[in-house]
Simulated assay, not measured.
Amino acid sequence: MDMALGIVDSTEIYIAVPSHCNTPSGGAYWVEIESKPAGAGVEDSELFRLLVSEAITRASPQDSLVDYVLEFYIKKGSDSIKAEEPARLRDFPLGPNADSEWALVPGVTVSTPAGDFSCEEKSRSIVHEKEIPTGRVKLVEKRNDRWTVWFSQGVPIFHLVRCSIERSKETETVPAIPGIPSSGKRESQTVAELVGFGYDAEPIISVDP
C-alpha cells in the first residue's frame, strides 16, 4: 500500500516443500513458490521451483541464496518450464539476523484467515541515510524501514504467520536553499499474512531428474 498515492494491490503467494531427495552434496528439499495477483488465474502466475540444500539451516550472515540452491526452474503462466542458472540468485542475502538485533515479545495472539495463533513477535527498525552531492548543495535521502514479524510453531516449515514492513522516505537539501523544496515524507506498507497451510503438498510442476 502506497499511502502517498493511495495505491493498494495484493499478491497471493503459495509456498510448498513437496519432497526431499539425496544429491551428491547431501540431502536437499524441493521448494515451490508461486506468485500471482490476488484473484488472478494461471496465465498471470509465476512459479519458481528450487532444489535447496539442507545446509541452508546453517547459513552464515554473509551467505546468499545462491550458496544453497542446486537447481532452479521458472514457469511463467502457461509457458514451458525453463531451467535457470542459480547464479541469478547471487544478490539475495540469506544470513539470519541475531535475536539481539530484534525486540522480542512472546505470547502475542494473532488472528488470520487461517486461524488464531500464539506467536513470538519480533520487530526492528533499519535507518538508511544517503548523501547525493549536487554542486554547491547536497541532497540527503533518509529512509526508515520498520519490520514486525510474527512466528508460531503451529505453522509448519517457515512458522511465519504475518509480516509487516512500514517504510518512510524523505529528502532534504543541505544547506536549505529557497526554490529547492525538500520532499515530504512518503510512506508505504507491505503486509504478508497467512491464509492457509497444510501437509503432504503435491508438486505443481515436475522436472526430469
Rank of each mutant, 00 (worst) to 15 (best):
P93H: 12
P113M: 00
T109L: 05
I81M: 13
R90I: 09
V105W: 00
K82M: 14
R90M: 06
P93R: 13
L89T: 02
D91F: 07
W102I: 06
S100I: 12
P86W: 04
W102K: 08
A103F: 09
R88G: 09
P86F: 02
N97G: 15
S80C: 09
I81K: 13
L89Q: 02
P86S: 06
L104M: 10
W102Y: 15
E84Q: 14
T112S: 04
V110I: 13
L104S: 07
E101M: 06
P86T: 05
K82C: 10
T112F: 03
D91L: 10
T109M: 06
E101C: 04
S100G: 04
T112G: 03
T109V: 07
V110H: 03
A83N: 12
A98E: 14
P93L: 09
P113I: 02
S100W: 05
L104V: 12
G95L: 08
E101N: 06
P106A: 04
G107V: 05
L94A: 11
P106D: 06
A87F: 06
D91Q: 11
P86L: 05
L94M: 13
G95D: 09
P86I: 04
P106F: 01
N97Q: 14
E85C: 13
R88K: 15
V110R: 03
T112R: 04
E84I: 03
R90P: 00
W102V: 07
S100V: 13
P106Q: 03
V105F: 01
V110S: 01
I81G: 10
E85D: 15
L89I: 02
L89G: 03
S111C: 02
A87N: 12
D99W: 11
G107Q: 10
V110D: 00
V108P: 00
P106N: 05
L104N: 04
G95F: 07
P96D: 07
P96T: 11
P93Y: 12
W102R: 09
E84P: 00
P86E: 03
R88D: 09
S80N: 15
L94F: 11
E85K: 15
P86H: 05
L89R: 03
V108H: 00
V108F: 00
A98D: 14
N97W: 13
V110M: 02
S100C: 09
L94I: 13
D99F: 13
V108C: 01
L104W: 03
P96M: 08
K82P: 00
P93V: 08
F92W: 11
E85A: 15
P113E: 01
T112A: 03
A87G: 11
G95I: 11
P113Q: 01
P93M: 09
P93T: 11
E101H: 03
F92S: 07
T112Y: 04
D99R: 12
A103L: 13
N97R: 15
T112Q: 04
S80F: 10
K82E: 15
V105E: 05
G95W: 09
P86Q: 06
A87V: 10
T109Q: 08
L89D: 01
N97I: 12
S100K: 10
P113L: 04
R90S: 14
S100Y: 07
G95R: 06
A87P: 00
E101K: 05
T109H: 04
S100R: 08
P106C: 01
S111K: 13
E85W: 06
D91G: 06
T112P: 02
